[in-house]
Structure formats: C-alpha cells, structure tokens
C-alpha cells in the first residue's frame, strides 16, 4: 500500500500532501501561487512555457511544476533567485518576440518580475506575420500574438476534438501554428467547434465578433 500522504517542504513550509499530485497542486495546498502560461487544467501538461519552473533540491536543472509530481521529502523552492531569473528572462525574451498587448496577465507578470524586453535591442527578431488571417466567418488568427503555448493544437487533436486541423510550420524560433500547406480554415478539417479560441491565452485566436467590435 502506498502511503496516502507524504511530507514535502515548499518554500520552507513543511506539509503533508497526497502522493502523485503535481508540484503546482501541492503549492496551491501550501497557499503558494506559481505563475503558469501554457498550463490548462483540462489539457495534457506539456510544460513548454517553463514559467512554472521551481528549484527542487538535488535536481541539476529546474523542474516544471505543472508536470513534475511530488515525491516524499521533496524540498522545493518556488521563488528563489535562480527561479526568478529564469522566469524573468523567459518573459523578457517572449515580450521581445511576440505582441503581448492582448495578454494583460503576462504584462503584469513581466512587471512583477522586473522584466525589461528592451534589453535585447530594437533590432531583436520578432515573430511577425502578414496581417490577421480572417478566412472564415467564425474566428480570426492573429499570429503576431501567438506565444506557441500549444493549447489550440492540443484541443484540436487528442486532448479534445480529434479534428487535426492545426499543426506546426518550421521549428525553433521560426515555429508557427499552421494548417496543411497553410490552407484557409474552411479548406481544412476544422469543424469550427471554437475550442481553440476558448483556450488561447494571448488573444491570438478571437471570435470574429470580438475581433471586429472589441471586448
């Protein structure tokens, strides 16, 4: 029989938690808030944004709180200097690459961590696209605002809809969310379920009405 509770330490606070829960869940039990971006409670945690990284004593690298599960006697720091440097730098690099004007939560986080995206210079490469893709009556895709959190791809695929209309172009910094040969949405397998719009955290996907009239 596995124990039904284990001892862990989060930011110096010892507490008993159920085994197998994520660090993120354990932190919430401890009343500690860890910032997240790609994480969504209904979706597979892919831990791509790495904003939720924490320091786990004994681990060579930082650990993503959304995907890492607690083990007995884990000693975790959620807000150490090392953690804050990583989070701040990720936010700065993101803000220097992507239009975050529709992502107030991320802007607030950037300010909270004292981030300055201008450190990379005005000539730092940004991911920009030729205008907004408005190829269907239901929603628009404004990829200047896309942070590549993967949520839309996940809901379109195995996590929810099994539609497989969305995937990726390119790789590395030049990764983009794409359709088959960049086809307009009506020519893809998209069923216009709206799930992708619902989970987009940065306003890259918007209902057409919202896009046209704001709100």
């Amino acid at each position: 029989m596995p124990p039904n509770e284990i001892w862990i330490t989060i930011d110096g606070q010892a507490l008993k938690v159920p085994p197998g829960i994520t660090i993120l869940e354990a932190a919430r039990l401890a009343g500690v808030e860890i910032p997240t971006l790609c994480y969504h409670p209904s979706l597979t945690a892919n831990a791509v944004c790495r904003l939720c990284v924490v320091e786990w004593r004994g681990s060579r690298t930082l650990v993503a709180a959304c995907a890492g599960t607690v083990r007995p006697n884990a000693v975790i720091l959620t807000n150490s200097r090392r953690v804050r440097t990583a989070r701040r730098t990720i936010l700065e690099m993101l803000a220097a690459s992507v239009d975050l004007s529709d992502a107030p939560d991320l802007q607030a986080l950037l300010a909270e961590y004292g981030g300055d995206p201008n450190r990379f210079g005005e000539d730092a490469a940004r991911r920009t696209f030729d205008g907004v893709k408005a190829d269907n009556p239901f929603y628009v895709r404004d990829y200047d605002k896309c942070v590549l959190c993967w949520r839309c791809v996940q809901v379109c695929a195995d996590d929810v809809q099994h539609t497989y209309a969305l995937g990726f172009n390119g790789r590395g910094f030049h990764t983009e969310i794409a359709t088959f040969f960049d086809a307009p949405m009506p020519d893809t397998t998209c069923v216009f379920c709206g799930n992708c719009v619902g989970v987009c955290p940065t306003g890259a996907l918007k209902g057409k009405r919202e896009y046209l009239w704001g709100g």
Binding site: R50, L51, A86, L94, A125, G172, F173
Partner: peptide, 21 residues
Amino acid sequence: FAHESCGKCFPCQLGTQRQVE
C-alpha cells in the same frame, strides 16, 4: 543551436535566437 532547436520549450526556442543575435 538556433537552427536545431525544435521550438518546443520557450527557453531554448527563444534563447537560441537571442544568443545568435
């Protein structure tokens, strides 16, 4: 590294580009 980063996680996807610059 910028050419070979897969683009999955933000630190590498963004960091390899900033490092190149």
